[in-house]
């Protein structure tokens, strides 16, 4: 009994911390987003999403982040399957390979893609050398998607790998023994059992891709504005915190939808990243 009471007391620091630094800050966004400069209640900051520029930025963000999520999934699923099938516990090694790049600064790594993709960049030099027509993707939506995929791919691979490596091999063997072909086994056994990982991976990739503002600034040129760029500018350049907060509330609707999705499909945290 005493030990349980002590344990309850132990939760106080974290409970207090999360109240002050997680819950209250979120409430502040709602406060700012739903008021104007005089402090009066208004929905203007939220309705502002429908203005042409903002709606265009949001549409582009959704489109590019969906593309990024799809590409990440298609690249990561086969990779996670190969890695999960390897014998022995490669868990630590795999986490290392995907976390290690983060020790080189995220901005520099993204900038390096500029060097690689530019008109006179490394890739085009190689292509010219080989006599293959050059690519022109820098400052296009494609370059932004590439930058997103590059930065967020680990967030898709790790949950998928975790979910796939938890599948009991006997279940798959049983299906094969009972006469199911490789494809049928995959569709009926492997794929459904990896759903927690898929959902978690989609959430972990879609949200940062939807809300990024750096990648678009570095690889998309100055003409392509994502919703993250718009919000960032409201806070740092325009100093219109109310409008910025209102637009963030709109973003949070998407994020909330994602959170619910992962809560429903990944109850036990089977597809967790670590």
């Amino acid at each position: 009994m005493t030990s349980n009471n002590k344990k309850k007391w132990l939760s106080a620091p974290y409970a207090l911390w999360s109240a002050v630094f997680i819950i209250i800050p979120l409430c502040m966004i709602f406060y700012y987003g739903l008021t104007d400069k005089t402090g009066a209640f208004t929905l203007d900051n939220i309705v502002a999403i429908t203005t042409v520029g903002h709606a265009k930025a949001l549409r582009l963000s959704i489109l590019l982040s969906l593309a990024c999520t799809l590409v990440c999934f298609l690249l990561a699923y086969p990779l996670a399957m190969i890695l999960a099938n390897k014998k022995g516990n490669k868990h630590q090694f795999i986490i290392l390979v995907f976390i290690l790049p983060m020790w080189m600064n995220f901005l520099l790594r993204t900038l390096a893609w500029q060097t690689l993709l530019e008109k006179n960049g490394v890739i085009n030099n190689v292509l010219t050398f080989l006599g293959i027509p050059n690519i022109k993707i820098i400052n296009t939506p494609a370059a932004i998607v590439l930058g997103m995929v590059y930065n967020f791919l680990p967030f898709m691979v790790l949950p998928l790998y975790n979910a796939l490596s938890k599948i009991d091999e006997n279940v798959i063997n049983a299906a094969r023994d009972l006469g199911a072909g490789a494809v049928y086994t995959f569709i009926r056994i492997t794929l459904p059992l990896s759903v927690p990982g898929i959902i978690s991976g989609i959430t972990m990739v879609f949200v940062p891709a939807l809300t990024t503002f750096v990648i678009s600034a570095l690889l998309g040129g100055s003409k392509l504005l994502l919703i993250g760029d718009v919000i960032e500018q409201e806070f740092t350049r325009a100093s219109n915190w109310h409008l910025g907060s209102g637009l963030s509330i709109v973003l949070m609707v998407f994020i909330l939808f994602n959170m619910i999705l992962s809560a429903v499909f990944d109850k036990d945290g089977e597809g967790s990243m670590l």
Partner: peptide
């Protein structure tokens, strides 16, 4: 659930919410 908020929330939202705080 509360622990998951900073993980699932957008960094830009976390950033500005802390700034406002």
């Amino acid at each position: 659930g509360i622990t998951n908020i900073p993980m699932l929330n957008a960094e830009i939202v976390t950033g500005i919410s802390l700034m406002l705080l």
